[in-house]
């Protein structure tokens, strides 16, 4: 427990300057966009007179200098205020808090699918490196990894929603179904099957290949030779000795692919019309909503930091060789 706390503290401290770079960078990037939030708002209104424009600019603080606005923004961030979304006319934080859970469910389920199925198939492939099964699984997973997630989503919709009618084509739950409790959970799960598959099957390859490589290396280790010399059953060697040692690096992979999966959720949520965080990003871009987009990027960076921290804690708990803090940050 003490180790986890030390790790957490050190990670948070070292994340602050990095996060600050993200905040300033994002702010400056979106400041460089032609037109500001007021222009976008007026466009949605269909125009307005000069007096209104000046008034709006003042109320959003857009008449201030760049540096002044940046300090105001960072100051507001410290009070958990991410600004005001122009397209939705609501606080950015509220929007993100409303959309994020859907995406976390989607990503969590996709990660679970990719990790469990990927490591299982990786064990099958790595049990006999170089065998026909191994080569078929390795190449097959590479082909899967080459598939664009949005296209896989469309193909899944075509087969399982349009032709077979097993799953709904889009949405997160049946609209106005009046379902509550467990029935609603089941409904949401049913809606998430296809999007989770579209996102998860692609990352499956990553875990499969990593597991397989790790196992191929573990086979050459002395302790495996010893286990074989002892006359242990092959199945036992594969599971208890080879696979177990290859499993640990996969935990690190969980953290590494978090950022990629968050990006992937943007397209998958757009394909399946899931009101999540990723689709919010797309909506922010379409609506030229700079405050919203800035908020989304900052929150996603924080999310990646948190996921990686959790992965590090899990890693330290799983591998006693990881010291309480001597390891590099």
């Amino acid at each position: 427990m003490h180790r986890a706390l030390t790790l957490t503290r050190r990670r948070i401290v070292s994340s602050i300057p990095v996060l600050l770079i993200v905040i300033v960078g994002t702010f400056l990037l979106l400041e460089a966009a032609p037109g500001d939030a007021v222009d976008a708002y007026l466009l949605s209104l269909g125009g307005g007179d000069a007096g209104l424009v000046a008034e709006l600019r003042q109320s959003y603080g857009l008449d201030q200098s760049l540096l002044k606005r940046l300090t105001l923004y960072v100051g507001a961030l410290l009070r958990f205020d991410l600004g005001w979304s122009v397209t939705f006319d609501r606080p950015v934080l509220d929007l993100i808090a409303e959309r994020l859970p859907n995406t976390l469910w989607l990503m969590g389920a996709a990660t679970a699918l990719a990790f469990s199925l990927g490591s299982f198939l990786g064990i099958v492939a790595g049990a006999r490196p170089g065998s026909l099964t191994d080569r078929a699984l390795s190449t097959g997973s590479l082909a899967l990894y080459a598939v664009p997630s949005f296209w896989l989503g469309l193909v899944l919709v075509l087969v399982f929603a349009v032709d077979l009618r097993w799953f709904p084509t889009a949405g997160i739950e049946t609209i106005a179904s009046g379902k509550t409790g467990l029935a609603r959970v089941a409904d949401i799960a049913w809606h998430l099957v296809l999007p989770v598959s579209a996102l998860g099957f692609i990352y499956l390859a990553l875990f499969l290949r990593m597991m397989r490589t790790g196992m191929t290396e573990a086979w050459r280790q002395d302790f495996v030779l010893f286990a074989r010399a002892k006359g242990l059953a092959r199945r036992r060697i594969v599971l208890r000795h080879v696979a177990r040692n290859a499993l640990l690096p996969l935990v690190t992979m969980l953290g590494l692919q978090a950022a990629a999966m968050l990006g992937g959720s943007v397209v998958v949520e757009s394909v399946f019309a899931i009101p999540g965080f990723g689709r919010l990003a797309h909506e922010a871009v379409s609506g030229r909503d700079a405050p919203l987009l800035t908020g989304i990027i900052i929150v996603s960076a924080m999310l990646v930091i948190v996921v990686n921290l959790l992965v590090d804690i899990a890693y330290a708990a799983l591998d006693p060789r990881v010291g309480s803090g001597e390891a590099a940050s």
Partner: peptide
């Protein structure tokens, strides 16, 4: 730590 896809999205939307 910023998802590359979001970064590309933001950059393209600006320029």
């Amino acid at each position: 730590i910023v998802p590359g896809f979001l970064l590309a999205l933001a950059f393209v939307s600006v320029t």
